[in-house]
Computed example of a mutant assay.
Amino acid sequence: MRAVELVRRLSAHELRLIVSIALWTARRRHGTRSGRAFGYVRGQGAMMFGFGFVCVLETVALAVLLRPWPAVERPVFVLDLYGVLQVVGMHAASVSRPHVLDATALRIRRAAHVDLRVPLDLIASVRLETRYTHEKREGELDLAVGAQTTITLELTESIRHFTFLGRPRYVHLIRFHADEPDVLVQAIREMRTLAPAPRTH
């Protein structure tokens, strides 16, 4: 990947994190006007809080230890603050960017780096399936939260998914997490009955 493209993608991700913090602070959610939102943050709330607490402690400790060397303290302090911002942004993105189900598609998201639109007419089956271990396999996408996925989608044909760095992957099976997986699975099944018939080739 070209350096310019990499910088563009990283910058876009940082911007989404900042926007997510603003949305979280305002108690608003992104992209939910046209559909029904389903959260997935409960599985990681405690972990993110703990991680953020450790980052804050590290920031304070290093600021004290490095005070005699201001030339070192200042850049380290900035980097530590950036790390804290990243943790807050990730949690904010998870809260403000939920999964969204509308009449034509299921929008599966994870924080600010995954936003995958799955047309309902490509869903062959959807089921409850709790997994805590995931092996990376060709054609499968695992979007675990707190090391857990609770819903499995099988598709009639592969769809394109872009990795964080922009590499395209084609997937026909998607596992992801939702706070209320049974409610989401039922909603998908009900919406699929109203959607056009699956595509055939």
Rank of each mutant, 00 (worst) to 15 (best):
V7P: 03
I21N: 00
F51D: 14
V171T: 12
A92M: 06
L79Y: 00
H91S: 13
R29T: 14
L6T: 13
P181Y: 02
L66F: 06
G89Y: 01
D121C: 00
F162L: 15
G89H: 00
A92L: 01
R169W: 10
L106S: 03
E135R: 15
M48F: 13
L155W: 12
L66Y: 01
T25A: 10
V100H: 02
T152H: 13
V100K: 04
S158E: 12
C55E: 05
E73T: 07
T163R: 09
R16P: 13
G35Y: 07
G166I: 12
V78C: 01
H201I: 14
P168T: 02
P119M: 00
L173N: 15
L101E: 03
A71D: 09
V84H: 02
V145C: 11
L6I: 13
D182P: 02
M90R: 09
I159K: 06
C55P: 02
H201T: 15
V19T: 05
A37V: 10
T104K: 11
R42T: 14
Q86M: 10
H13I: 12
G31H: 06
S34Y: 11
E135N: 10
R199E: 09
C55N: 08
R8F: 14
I174C: 08
P198G: 02
F53A: 12
E5P: 06
I159Y: 11
D102R: 02
V87M: 05
L143Q: 13
Y82A: 01
A63Q: 04
R137V: 04
R9W: 11
P98I: 08
P181Q: 05
P198Y: 00
D179T: 08
P181N: 08
V76S: 00
A147I: 09
V88H: 00
I188A: 09
R199G: 07
H177K: 15
R27Q: 09
D179I: 01
A195H: 08
G139Q: 09
V4N: 13
L79K: 00
E58L: 03
F162T: 08
H177T: 12
T32I: 15
I159H: 09
L153M: 14
A144H: 05
T59M: 07
L128V: 14
I21Q: 01
H134V: 11
H177C: 14
F176D: 10
L17A: 11
A92H: 02
F49K: 09
A147Q: 08
R36C: 11
R189C: 03
D102V: 10
A46G: 03
